[in-house]
Computed example of a mutant assay.
Amino acid sequence: MTIREVTIDDVRDAESVIREHLTPIPLIRSYSLERELGLPSHRRVWLKDYGWTPVGSFKLLGALYWMAKNLERIGDRPVAAHSSGNFASGISFAGMRYKKQVVVVMPESAPRVKFKLTRSFGAEVMTYDISRDHETGERDRITRELADERKAVQASPYDDPYVIAGNGVGGLEVVTELQQQGRDVSHFFCQVSGGGLMAGQAIAIADGFPSAKIIGVEPDGADDFRQSLAANKRTRVDHPQSICDGLLSYDVGEHNWPILRKFVTDAVAISELKTRGAMKWLYDTHGLRTEPSGAISTAALLSGQISTEGTGDIVVVISGRNVDEDRFQEWMTLPSDSK
Results as ranks from 00 to 15, higher is better:
L197S: 06
T298Y: 01
R4I: 15
R234Q: 07
Q305E: 13
F328R: 03
G38E: 03
V103L: 04
E15H: 03
F189P: 05
Q154M: 15
K339Q: 13
G253V: 06
E108T: 15
D224T: 10
T333R: 11
P40S: 10
E254W: 04
S186V: 08
S89G: 12
I214S: 03
S242G: 12
R19G: 10
S84Q: 03
S303K: 10
S228I: 02
A165T: 00
T235G: 09
T2Q: 12
K69C: 10
P219R: 10
E20G: 04
I270W: 01
V103W: 01
A199P: 09
P219W: 05
I74V: 13
S338N: 15
P54Y: 06
G253Y: 03
R29D: 00
G182P: 10
C190S: 11
A165S: 13
E291Y: 07
G221W: 06
R29P: 14
G166C: 11
G200R: 07
R150G: 10
Y98Q: 01
S307N: 12
F189R: 04
V315K: 06
E272R: 02
R44P: 04
S338G: 08
W52C: 12
S131M: 15
L248V: 06
T265S: 15
L273C: 11
V192N: 00
G122F: 02
T118F: 00
I8L: 09
G246P: 04
V45E: 03
E177A: 12
V103G: 02
S92F: 06
V169C: 04
G171V: 04
Y31S: 08
G216P: 01
I74L: 02
I314G: 08
K151W: 13
I164G: 00
A155L: 04
P40T: 09
T143Q: 06
L47N: 03
T235H: 10
T136M: 07
G310P: 04
E330D: 14
S303I: 11
A231V: 08
I314K: 10
A94F: 01
E254S: 15
E135Q: 06
E15Q: 09
Q227H: 10
K339T: 14
C244R: 00
K151T: 14
T285G: 01
K233S: 15
R29V: 09
A202I: 03
G246M: 00
F87R: 01
I130V: 13
L334G: 12
F263T: 10
G122H: 07
V104K: 08
N322S: 11
T290Q: 11
E177N: 11
L178W: 02
G253R: 07
T2P: 11
N70Y: 01
Y162R: 07
V315H: 03
P335F: 11
D133L: 00
I205W: 09
D337A: 00
I3E: 07
T2D: 10
R144Y: 04
A199Q: 00
V153A: 12
V217P: 09
A63Q: 05
P24M: 06
R144I: 06
D223V: 04
V175L: 09
R144K: 10
E20K: 13
V323F: 02
E145D: 14
Q101T: 14
G122D: 01
S32P: 05
A94G: 12
H255E: 12
A165I: 09
I259T: 12
S120Y: 01
